[in-house]
Amino acid sequence: MAAGGWACSGYLVEQGGFRLLLDAGYAIVPRLLERVSAAQVDAVFISHGHPDHCADLNPLLRARALGGHSAPLPVYALPGALDAVLALDRPGMLDTAYVFHEIVPGVSMEIGPFRAETRLLPHWVPNAGIRLTADDRVLAYTGDTGPSPQVVHLARDADLLLAEATYADRVPEPSSRYLSSARIAGRLREPVLATCS
């Protein structure tokens, strides 16, 4: 959870001028807009429907809709993951601000210059990790997840694994199937960037 001055999950990945936002958790839009305008985001991938990973999709879409940006933003997510965040505004207000692309885990797709492969990972709600490949470089991102062979598959031979880690060391037993720690993520792959959320 984001404390004052911090933000939740949100990572801007750029390749050949194309900007893909991986997750849009609480408080990421102000930080994002310090770097690029809302119109300069080319696509968004949302790993799952918990607000610390998707709540700021609403203000990003509002900025585009109210700023007169005419091209709809491609948004990739699992079925139903965005229902709550898209219902925050009056019906129809954001309809022209985005185009929804349903993720089918295990099926490859193209997102701009990236070849994307997703895997369903264990969490309390459906969560899709993603493996992005461009110019023979690979970035893997987990979103929130517990340990799984699918995480290992995403991370295999990746240049960078961006692994969400709710805990630094040990995950309490009731959550151990659905969340990870930095210690667990660090055993998966080098180099690793484990982020606490």
Rank of each mutant, 00 (worst) to 15 (best):
G4Y: 02
A7T: 11
A7L: 09
A7F: 02
A7C: 13
C8G: 10
S9L: 13
Y11M: 14
Q15P: 00
G17C: 06
F18I: 02
R19V: 04
L20F: 02
L21I: 13
L21Q: 04
L21E: 08
L21Y: 03
L22R: 09
D23Y: 01
A24Y: 03
A24N: 05
Y26R: 14
I28Q: 11
V29R: 13
P30T: 13
P30A: 08
R31D: 08
L32G: 01
L33I: 04
E34Y: 00
E34C: 01
V36M: 03
S37W: 01
S37I: 07
S37Y: 04
A39C: 13
A39L: 12
V41G: 00
D42N: 14
A43M: 08
A43E: 07
V44Y: 03
V44R: 06
F45Q: 07
I46D: 06
S47C: 14
S47K: 13
S47R: 13
H48Q: 14
H48G: 14
H48L: 11
G49C: 10
G49K: 05
H50F: 08
H50K: 14
H50G: 11
D52T: 15
H53N: 10
H53R: 05
A55F: 10
A55K: 08
A55V: 05
A55L: 14
N58K: 11
P59E: 10
P59V: 05
P59N: 07
P59L: 08
L61D: 00
L61Q: 00
R62W: 03
A63Y: 02
A63K: 12
A63D: 12
A63H: 12
R64Y: 03
R64L: 06
A65I: 04
A65F: 07
L66F: 08
S70I: 03
A71H: 11
P72D: 07
L73A: 02
P74S: 11
P74V: 03
L78C: 11
P79T: 09
A81C: 10
A81G: 08
V85D: 10
L86A: 01
L86C: 04
A87Y: 15
L88Q: 15
D89W: 05
P91D: 06
G92I: 03
L94D: 03
T96H: 12
T96D: 09
A97G: 09
Y98C: 00
Y98E: 02
F100A: 10
H101D: 04
E102F: 02
E102M: 13
E102K: 14
E102S: 15
I103K: 07
I103A: 10
V104H: 08
V104Y: 05
V104D: 09
S108C: 08
E110N: 13
I111K: 02
I111F: 01
G112K: 05
F114A: 06
F114G: 02
F114M: 11
R115Q: 10
R115F: 04
R115E: 15
A116E: 02
E117R: 12
E117G: 04
T118L: 10
R119K: 14
